[in-house]
C-alpha cells in the first residue's frame, strides 16, 4: 500500500489531520460548541465551489471562507447581534446554499464534487501536504503556547475576564484554529465529515480520561488511530476515506460510551 505515492501522501496528511482535528475539537467540545466545526465545514464547501468557479486552488478558497466564517460567528456572538446557535445557523445555511449555487454556476454539480464533500485518498497532492504540514505546525504551536489561556477560558470564561485575560481574543484563536483545521482536513475526510473527526475522538477520550490534559492527549491518539485505520480500510476495501475514518472514530466513541457512561466516568 505504501509503495504508492498517493498513499504515502494520504497517510502523511492524514496523520497531521488525525492529531490536529481532535486537538482543536477538544476546545469546541469542552465549550459546548461542537457544531461550530460543522458550520465551518459547510462554509468550506462554499469556498471549494468559489475556487472551482474562479479556477483557483479550492483548498485556498476553502480556508479563506472558513476563516471568514469563524470570525463572523465570533463577531455576531460577541456583539450580541445573535445568540450563539443563531449565529451558527446563519453562517451554516448561508455556506451550504452559497456552495450549491456556486457549484451549479461553475457547472460542477457532478461526481467530482464528492472528493471534497467526503474526502478522497487520491486527491492529496504534495503541495497540499506542505500546506497541511505548515498550517498544522502553526496550529499546534498556537495551542502549545496558549494552552493555559485556552484551558482557563474554556473552564471559566467569566473568571478569566476578571483575571484580565483577553477572552474574546482567545475565543477568536479557537475559532480560527477550527477554520484552519476544516480547511486542511477536507482533502482527507471531506468538508461534510470533518466536524465528526473534531468531536468523536474527544467524546471517546472524555469517557476514558482521568484529567483534562489526558482527555486532550487521548483524543489526539484516537483521532490519529482512526485516520490510520480508516485510510487502510479505505485502500483495501475501495471505500471513501472520510466515511471510513469517521465510522472507525464513531465505533471507538460508541464502545467508550457503552463501557463507561457519563454518570460512571471517573
Amino acid at each position: 500500500m505504501l509503495r504508492f505515492e498517493f498513499m504515502r501522501l494520504a497517510f502523511a496528511a492524514g496523520a497531521v489531520v488525525g492529531l490536529l482535528a481532535p486537538a482543536v475539537g477538544f476546545f469546541l467540545v469542552e465549550r459546548r460548541a461542537a457544531l461550530v466545526g460543522d458550520g465551518l465545514g459547510h462554509l468550506a464547501f462554499a469556498g471549494v465551489a468559489a475556487g472551482t468557479l474562479l479556477g483557483i486552488s479550492p483548498v485556498g478558497t476553502a480556508l479563506v471562507f472558513a476563516v471568514a466564517g469563524a470570525l463572523a460567528i465570533q463577531w455576531l456572538g460577541t456583539r450580541r447581534h445573535a445568540a450563539g446557535d443563531q449565529a451558527l445557523a446563519l453562517v451554516f445555511y448561508t455556506g451550504i446554499a452559497l456552495g450549491v449555487v456556486l457549484v451549479s454556476a461553475a457547472g460542477r454539480l457532478d461526481a467530482g464534487l464528492f472528493a471534497f464533500l467526503f474526502g478522497s485518498i487520491l486527491t492529496v497532492e504534495s503541495s497540499d501536504l506542505w500546506l497541511i504540514l505548515a498550517l498544522g505546525g502553526v496550529a499546534f504551536l498556537a495551542i502549545g503556547l496558549l494552552w493555559r489561556g485556552l484551558v482557563a477560558t474554556t473552564l471559566d470564561p467569566e473568571g478569566s475576564r476578571v483575571a484580565g485575560a483577553r477572552v474574546a481574543a482567545l475565543d477568536t484563536v479557537v475559532a480560527v484554529l477550527a477554520a484552519l483545521t476544516v480547511g486542511i482536513s477536507m482533502r482527507i475526510v471531506g468538508v461534510l465529515l470533518v466536524a465528526a473527526l473534531m468531536t468523536l475522538p474527544v467524546i471517546a477520550a472524555q469517557r476514558l480520561a482521568w484529567s483534562l490534559s489526558s482527555t486532550f492527549g487521548l483524543a489526539a491518539l484516537v483521532g490519529l488511530g482512526s485516520v490510520l485505520v480508516g485510510l487502510t480500510i479505505s485502500y483495501y476495501a475501495d471505500l471513501p476515506p472520510g466515511g471510513t475514518i469517521v465510522l472507525v472514530a464513531a465505533a471507538v466513541a460508541l464502545v467508550a460510551t457503552v463501557a463507561r457512561p457519563v454518570g460512571r466516568a471517573r
Binding site: E30, L146, R148, S211, L212
Partner: peptide, 27 residues
C-alpha cells in the same frame, strides 16, 4: 464545571494563575 472532561482539582486551581502569569507560555 461545564466541561465534559474529568478536570482535576490541580487543573482547575492552576487556571487561577491566569491572573498572575497571563495566557501565554507554560506554568
Amino acid at each position: 464545571l461545564t466541561a465534559g472532561s474529568p478536570v482535576t482539582v490541580r487543573e482547575i486551581v492552576s487556571a487561577g494563575r491566569l491572573a498572575v502569569r497571563g495566557a501565554f507560555g507554560p506554568l
